[in-house]
Amino acid sequence: MRVLAAMSGGVDSAVAAARAVAAGHDVVGVHLALSAKPGTLRTGARGCCTIEDSHDARRAADLLGIPFYVWDFAERFTEEVIETFVGEYAAGRTPNPCLTCNEKIKFEALLEKAMALGFDAVCTGHYARLSVVDGVPELRRSRDEGKDQSYVLASLTSEQLRHSMFPLGGSLKSEVREEAAERDLAVAKKPDSHDICFIPDGDTKSFLENKLGQTPGQLVDEETGAVLGEHTGVHGFTIGQRKGLGIDAPAPDGKPRYVLSLEPVSGTVKVGSRDRLAVTEIDAKRPIWPSEKPLDGPTECVIQVRAHGGTADAVAEFDGEHLKIQLRQELQGVAPGQAVVLYRPDEAGDLVLGSGIISATR
């Protein structure tokens, strides 16, 4: 097959490309330039998608003996990822920009261009297991549970998955680093990137305030209605947040307060005790079925609401438009805008049944 290997400049994508070459595919490497001003993205251990990373990707491609290109996706990244991120926070929701990037950039824009150029598949270094049985894709958790990325891939359509390759799904991260060292890849010991790549200093609140300005509002005790303080914008808060609330007086019981809800129109941020964060029901919109099999009646499953952690046994139903999920165990800090992913546990590795965007919780 003709395979386009998305090479971020990290160890995972380099080894994934190497495995595609070793499997006998005709491989071409590509690095995505996602910023019109690469210097504004992080560098070193905390970054991704930087000039430094493009150089690392090129060196890995040269060692593998494959052609290498840099494609400019900065404009689309800004529109699809950054502007969506800002807009969601302004609306009082909590988005996952990595999920959006996978959906809109790596497996929509990139895959579209790859198909137009005659490639059969896009190969990435994501940790997830993928198989196609009788033309139907099956996306599962990776062998390395700590690195599993099936959550941020669960928004991909079956057609996108049919043209995707995840060579690392059956490996542990330690094994990937060992293989990189054996192949003399310079990125073998390169630290993993983390946090949000387009926020240079990691200060999400300041980034959003710079984009949205200040929209003052009140911090209100949910139970009593008492005004506890003021803030400069609901975009500076997320459901479940405990630190940085700007409340001077302690709660009557002496326990910490948490953000319970956000009201962008009135500018009200409601806070309260931790036990009021408990969620037992979730509604979700925009359902996606990677294996083209919508739920048929009440379905026992395990749901996940964050990239790492936040899982619970549940019963999910699909009414033809929305997902209705009843949790068997309470979850806390679940926010509208987050993705919820449904899994079916099995011996082969939990199968992704579907995903949706959380619209309401109770």
Rank of each mutant, 00 (worst) to 15 (best):
A6Q: 03
V21S: 04
V30T: 11
K37H: 15
P38T: 10
T40I: 04
T43E: 15
G47R: 06
C49L: 04
D56M: 10
A57V: 08
R59M: 11
L64C: 01
V70A: 04
F73G: 03
V86Y: 03
G87Y: 14
R93E: 12
R93I: 09
E103K: 10
K104Q: 01
F119I: 02
H126L: 08
R129I: 10
S131Y: 02
V133W: 02
R143S: 14
E159R: 14
L161Y: 05
R162P: 10
H163N: 07
K173P: 08
K173D: 04
E179L: 07
R183M: 15
L185W: 12
D192R: 06
S193Y: 15
H194K: 13
I199Y: 07
D203Y: 12
L212E: 08
G217R: 02
L219E: 01
F237V: 14
Q241H: 05
L245R: 02
L260S: 13
S261R: 10
S266A: 11
V269L: 09
V271M: 07
S273G: 13
R286P: 00
C301D: 01
R306D: 12
A312R: 02
A314M: 09
I325Y: 07
E330C: 04
Y343V: 05
A348F: 00
I357M: 03
I358H: 03
